[in-house]
Design a protein around this nucleic acid. Structure first.
Lengths: 343, 343
DNA sequence: CGTTAGCACTCAACTCGAACGAGTGCTAAC
DNA sequence: GTTAGCACTCGTTCGAGTTGAGTGCTAACG
């Protein structure tokens, strides 16, 4: 239906328009490396393409933009080599391997709900030391060579990891391992589990177990818990709703800062009061990107010890009353729930 | 430091400015119900407040806006009655009670990653029937009157629920219950568990167990799995980054539609191809709000049966190649992982 | 005959100045 | 102490004029 050259030109126009979001002129197409015709020739083809319905003209003296039919053709004849950038591949792969702990999942969820309710950006800073220790360890063997390691923490959260059971390990041997681990590891903080197993208990295990080596490598995966201080944020683009940030330029530096975890962590920690709710207005935040922003923070705590920080970031023209009310309620609820967990 | 009246006026100005985002004039303050002075009086006070540094004037003939100092004063003297709207309370409460299944958490996470990588809006439609059945049931009693019910599904996912154990129930009775449930419920689809327990097995349980009634109410919470088709979306405000949606009016209808779950579900189902990747451009979407949008969908499947749909929504001027590449990769990975799960 | 240079034409975007009006500060009267 | 009145300021709006990117057409070229 379309000549080779028409396809080429249509393709170039769609490509250009996707990049620039502005009507594409004949001159700019002609200047591309892959098309070697003068603007006049291109213009003729463009007129034809428009007549065929693949292109549109916003107004007489403007360049062309693709019509829906044009996009359709472009998509249908897209070269099937969709190269995905390495960075993107990395992020997607990470998603599949990432293991969020129960506590982390809760925080991420809380961030989402908060940004959704307030229409501002929410930032949650995890507890520096989550005082969770092991309360119970269990291995549930499945019918094949795998099992599920289940760890109940002192807060009542349940972590589970799939592990592969080495061949030749008998059921009784498994049971022995579980009993041993339970007797020695209960009460040990989660983040110490791994080192504890490999240092203190390994000797004893070696004595009792026949397939010690294999068992250890299998367990290795189950206890791999890094427990560093993580930061969760949600609704970053909610900034764009605010009229004061109508032009991207102003928001750019804020969005950039939000990506920069270390600085953001610093700002949050600085802003947070030892207890209660703290409001940082404009320049009170020690970063120029937040000059037109206010950051409201609340801490949730247990027995007077602060466990984490919740922050809401918005324009200085923020609904302080509402946000403070919500944060108040949330931090109380968090504290209450933590108390329940720890009993 | 400030007179009663100055406080009142400052308060009114901040309130107004937070609402309108526009400089506040003396007239509009005077017309409010709570301030009964003429504009002239207000003007005098405003001039004083400006001199004191609480207000600013963008230019000579404009109204006043609060300075950072003004916000500070406003916040510090905020009436501590922060009423939170019932709807917000409801959503926050729901967050604390909500129990997402492992599969749902995975989907939500996938939606987040996708919208983050693509910078468009991602929509995930859950599987209509997730063919998961029970593979193993376990009760882990904690030292107090509670226990954790753990269900391993046929896909290897682990669901856990905290339940309260009725008084007077002995350890042996618990064990009996677990054994009974395991022998009768393995292989039963998760969404049928509850009815199965209450219809077919209840009789048998009644025969064997002393504290039947209490046990049943306790178990009730553990198996409450609704498993309806859920929809997850993330990055809705990413739309705002696109220059074609620079003014809110155009986006409004789209954002509204995204909130409207049933319609969105319909659009996604219509758009989805039985397999592979499908592109809906502009008006091809059967909804006028999507006139300037394109929806790219991919399905992930198992043994030829489609299990769910992934969608990316962006402007018609979308980076089709890139998004298709990413979706391709992701849907393949999803399919591969599902195969692993089901073995 | 396909391609290209040249040129007249179109029309959104920008510029400038005038008119408008929201809002102020000041003064005088209540 | 409060308020009405009024001159003044200055961003916003609107229309006319200008600019320039881009087109369509015609004629010349290889």
């Amino acid at each position: 239906m379309l000549t080779e050259r028409q396809q080429m030109i249509l393709n170039a126009i769609v490509d250009d328009y996707i990049r620039s979001a502005e009507p594409v002129g004949s001159r700019s197409i002609s200047k591309r490396g892959d098309v070697n015709y003068s603007p006049a020739t291109i213009r003729n083809e463009m007129a034809d393409l428009e007549e065929l319905g693949f292109l549109e003209q916003p107004h007489t003296s403007a360049g062309r933009i693709p019509s829906n039919k044009g996009y359709r053709y472009y998509v249908d004849h897209l070269t099937p080599v969709h190269s995905v950038k390495p960075a993107e591949v990395k992020e997607l792969k990470r998603f599949f391997t990432e293991q969020l702990s129960a506590a982390e999942q809760m925080m991420q969820h809380a961030a989402m709900v908060l940004s959704h309710v307030t229409n501002y950006t929410s930032i949650l800073l995890g507890p520096e030391v989550f005082h969770t220790s092991l309360r119970h360890f269990q291995l549930l063997p499945l019918e094949d060579q795998s099992a599920i390691a289940i760890m109940v923490t002192s807060t009542g959260q349940v972590e589970n990891r799939k592990i592969r059971i080495p061949d030749h390990v008998s059921a009784s041997e498994l049971e022995q391992t579980v009993n041993l681990l339970n007797s020695r590891l209960i009460g040990v903080p989660l983040y110490k589990l791994k080192t504890r197993i490999f240092s203190e208990i390994s000797e004893e295990m070696q004595r009792h177990l026949e397939h010690y080596e294999e068992m250890m490598t299998a367990l290795d995966g189950a206890f791999g818990q890094e427990q560093e201080q993580k930061i969760f944020l949600s609704g970053a683009t909610n900034m764009l709703i605010q009229p004061e940030f109508r032009d991207m330029d102003k928001v750019k530096s804020i969005l950039d800062l939000l990506e920069e975890t270390p600085t953001l962590t610093r700002l949050m920690t600085e802003a947070a009061a030892p207890q209660g709710i703290q409001v940082r207005i404009g320049a009170e935040n020690a970063h120029e990107a937040f000059e037109n922003c206010s950051l409201i923070t609340a801490t949730y705590e247990l027995d007077g010890e602060s466990l984490g920080t919740i922050g809401i970031l918005g324009p200085t023209r923020m609904e302080y009353g509402r946000v403070i009310g919500i944060l108040n309620m949330l931090s109380h609820d968090m504290t209450r729930i933590l108390k329940q967990w720890y009993r």
